[in-house]
Structure formats: structure tokens, C-alpha cells
Nucleic acid binder design. Sequence first.
DNA 1: ATCCTACTACGATATTCTTCGTAGTGCAAG
DNA 2: CTTGCACTACGAAGAATATCGTAGTAGGAT
Lengths: 128, 128
Amino acid sequence: MTTDPPRPTDAELEILTVLWNRGPGTVRDVHDAIAARKPTQYTTVLKTLQIMAAKGLVRRDETQRAHVYEAALPSEVTRRQLAGDLLTRAFSGSARNLMLGALSSRKATKKELAELRKLLDDYEKGTV
Amino acid sequence: MTTDPPRPTDAELEILTVLWNRGPGTVRDVHDAIAARKPTQYTTVLKTLQIMAAKGLVRRDETQRAHVYEAALPSEVTRRQLAGDLLTRAFSGSARNLMLGALSSRKATKKELAELRKLLDDYEKGTV
DNA sequence: ATCCTACTACGATATTCTTCGTAGTGCAAG
DNA sequence: CTTGCACTACGAAGAATATCGTAGTAGGAT
């Protein structure tokens, strides 16, 4: 039995987001995506990806000279972990209060509220 | 204009939770609450509270020999910050997906789902 | 006055996080 | 073959985190 990968750090989550959005990619791919938004050295991304591989957060395919990295877990699983973690640590398990915090952190559109209602319905039906 | 206090760390959040639940208290108070759940040295809590005071996460009343600490911000504000932060960093701003993550991290009761629906209604009415 | 206890202050350590520079290597172009 | 480039490996350093031990002090009890 292997242990679950630990909760990703901020920098790691940023990289995971790129891998989730674009699918598996090389360090170059990830770096380009991140450097487009903030100045970052190539080797910083490389090193972080190596650490993430050691932690089991990403898998690495070394058959090519430029290794190809892939998120070890689908975004849903990691997100569930993060949401559940915050729910426990900061909200004493109250989903209601977590949602309230999220909603009040910024304006929610009517469309989003409708989505949320539908989600509750689907959840109750077991559709999701 | 003062800067907002930074996002609390795990250990800091644990202490804030005690202060939110019990109101202002001494290091002794906080330590007793935490040590009841996991072995922790008194001075660890003391040191962390001192650091938190320096960061502005808590306020300190030194008029008594045993200083009295108080959360600098109400739980709602810090929680909003944390929820908003996770919403942005891990969920690309999708409240729907954050809620899905929270719900799927553990079973939700019928009562809780009702609470959530009511929250959406209240939010739409501006009641909350 | 002396002693004991509870308290604060603070240094120190180990670990993690984040970033970056340097060194080494394989490969393709000339 | 030689050169240059893109890539990996890795050490290092600085900041943040988390924990604990020691030293010093205030104040009440004897």
C-alpha cells in the first residue's frame, strides 16, 4: 500500500493546474505557460517538477530526451482533497460556511447560483 | 494604510480556531485546548502566538501578567480569505467546482443540503 | 526574605518551500 | 569532428514553518 501524495504547495498547485489544463507536457511546456504570467526561471520549474515526481504528485516519462510530466491524480481528486482539507481545518466541516466564504469572497452571477442549485440537485440524485 | 495580515499557516489556523471558539484567552487557555487533542509543548504555542502577533494575526493585551490574545479578524473574514484563495488557486474561480469538491470529500446530510439551498436563497435576496 | 511556580523572551534546530546558478550530456547542424 | 543548444541533475541559499529548550522574571506563599 502506497501513501497518498501530500497536499501540493502553492508552487506545485500552479504547475498541476498547467498539467491539468494542457495535459502531459515537458518542462518547457509548463515553463512557457507559467512564464507567460510571471517571470520564472526554467530551472525553477524543472526543479519543482523533479521534487513533485519524488513526492508522487506527477509521473514522469523518461523515454524522450525531454521528459514528459503528467499529473499523477486527476484534478477532481486533488481538488477534493484540497476542499475537504480546508473544510475541516478552517470550517469545522460546515459546507454551508465554506460556500458562504466562497460566495462572499467575490460577486456571484445569477448563472453561477443556478449552477450551484443544479449541483445540489444532482448531488442529491446521485447523478454526480 | 496597513497591509492585510497574510494567510495563516496550518499551525496558526489551529490557534485561531481556538480563539474564535472560546474568545480571547491566554497562552495557557490556548495550549490547554490544543494539547487536549494532540501533544504540544506550551512554549510552542507561546512562540507561535508571538509570531502571529508580529504578523498582525492576533492582538495582544499585555496589561495582565499572562497576556491575553485575541484574533485580529473575525472568523468570517479570515474564512472568506481562505475560501477565496483556494477558489482562485485550485478551482479557477468556479464556486460550483469548489462546492463539488467539498461535497464529494465526505457524505453530506439532507439537512446540510437544505442549509445550502437556503444559503443560496438568502444570498440572492441579499439577506446574507 | 526566600522559594516556587507560572509566565515571557528568545535562541536554536530541523524541515520544508522556493528559487536560481552551475555543471554535465546528448544530439543535430555545420 | 566540433560546436552550440536544449535538456537534466544537483547543490546551495534564503525564507518560512514548526518545534522545543533554556534563561530570566514577577509575584504569591511560606
